[in-house]
C-alpha cells in the first residue's frame, strides 16, 4: 500500500489524489500540485517515479474495484479526507477501425477508462464530502467531439467519462463540490508517441485541431488551476476542450 505515513505538517496541507502519476500528464499534474503546496497521493500499476517529501505513491490498478477501495481506505486513515481528485489514468492506444477492433481491446478501454474512473470517483468523492471547496476533475479528450475514425472505443469511453462527471457534478453540488472535465488535444506523452509511430498519424491529428500544435502539459495544469480556484465555485459540469473549437 502507500509508501509511508504522512507527517503532521503534511496532514495540514490540501490533499490531492491523482491517478496515473508515473508518467505523462498525471506526473505533470502531480508535480504541479506538489509545487503548489498540496500533499499528493498518486497511483499507477508500476512503481512511482516522483521523489518529493509530500508525494505518496501506491501501486493500484484502477480496473480492480477492491484495489481502489483499499487505496481509498488507506488514504482516509492517513489523511482523513481529500480536497482534489483528478481521474487522469487512461488508456490511449489502438487506432483501429471499429470493424477491426478485437473484443479484448474494447474490454480494456471499458475497464480502464470507464470502470476505473467510476471506481475512483465513487471511492474518493465520498472522502470529499466534508471538505469545503473540494474539486473533482476528470480527463477526456478532443477525440470526443472530433468523432475521429479509429477512436470508436477510446472516444466512447471518454464521452462516458464526460457524462458521468456531469451527473456527479449535480449530485455533489449541494455539498459545494465542483466536478469538471479537461479534454486536451494532442500532448507529447508516451501514449501519444506510441500512436504517432503509425505513419502520418500525428500530422493528421494536428490538422484537425483548431490550434494545430502539441498542447503543453503546463497548459493543462493551468486549466486545472482555474477549476481549483475558490472563485470557480460556481463552475461545475463543464468540459474544457484545449486546442479545439467544439
Amino acid at each position: 500500500m502507500a509508501d509511508r505515513a504522512p507527517s503532521e505538517t503534511e496532514t495540514q496541507k490540501p490533499v490531492a489524489v491523482i491517478t496515473g502519476t508515473s508518467r505523462g500528464l498525471g506526473r505533470a499534474l502531480a508535480e504541479h500540485f506538489l509545487a503548489r503546496g498540496h500533499a499528493v497521493a498518486g497511483c499507477s500499476r508500476g512503481e512511482g517515479t516522483i521523489d518529493h517529501e509530500a508525494y505518496h505513491h501506491t501501486v493500484v490498478d484502477i480496473r480492480e474495484e477492491t484495489e481502489v477501495q483499499a487505496w481509498a481506505r488507506a488514504l482516509r486513515r492517513e489523511f482523513g479526507g481529500v480536497d482534489l481528485l483528478i481521474g487522469n489514468a487512461g488508456l490511449a492506444r489502438s487506432a483501429l477501425y471499429l470493424a477491426m477492433t478485437p473484443g479484448d481491446v474494447f474490454d480494456d478501454f471499458l475497464r480502464v477508462n470507464f470502470a476505473g474512473v467510476f471506481f475512483t470517483l465513487r471511492e474518493f468523492s465520498k472522502l470529499m464530502l466534508r471538505r469545503p471547496d473540494a474539486r473533482v476533475i476528470t480527463i477526456s479528450s478532443t477525440m470526443v467531439p472530433l468523432h475521429q475514425e479509429g477512436t470508436s472505443c477510446y472516444a466512447a469511453t471518454k464521452a462516458a467519462v464526460e457524462e458521468m462527471t456531469k451527473v456527479l457534478a449535480r449530485e455533489l453540488a449541494p455539498q459545494g463540490i465542483t466536478c469538471n472535465v479537461i479534454a486536451p488535444a494532442m500532448m507529447d506523452t508516451e501514449a501519444s508517441r506510441e500512436l504517432a509511430k503509425d505513419g502520418d498519424w500525428k500530422e493528421r491529428m494536428l490538422e484537425k485541431q483548431t490550434i494545430p500544435r502539441v498542447i503543453g502539459m503546463d497548459e493543462i495544469c493551468h486549466v486545472a488551476d482555474f477549476f481549483v480556484s475558490p472563485l470557480a465555485g460556481a463552475v461545475t459540469g463543464q468540459v474544457v476542450y484545449v486546442g479545439l473549437v467544439d
Binding site: 465520498k126 472522502l127 464530502l129 455533489l172
Partner: peptide
C-alpha cells in the same frame, strides 16, 4: 436525502 445518506454512512 441521497447525499445525506452517504454522509450518514461515512
Amino acid at each position: 436525502d441521497s447525499l445525506g445518506f452517504v454522509n450518514f454512512v461515512m
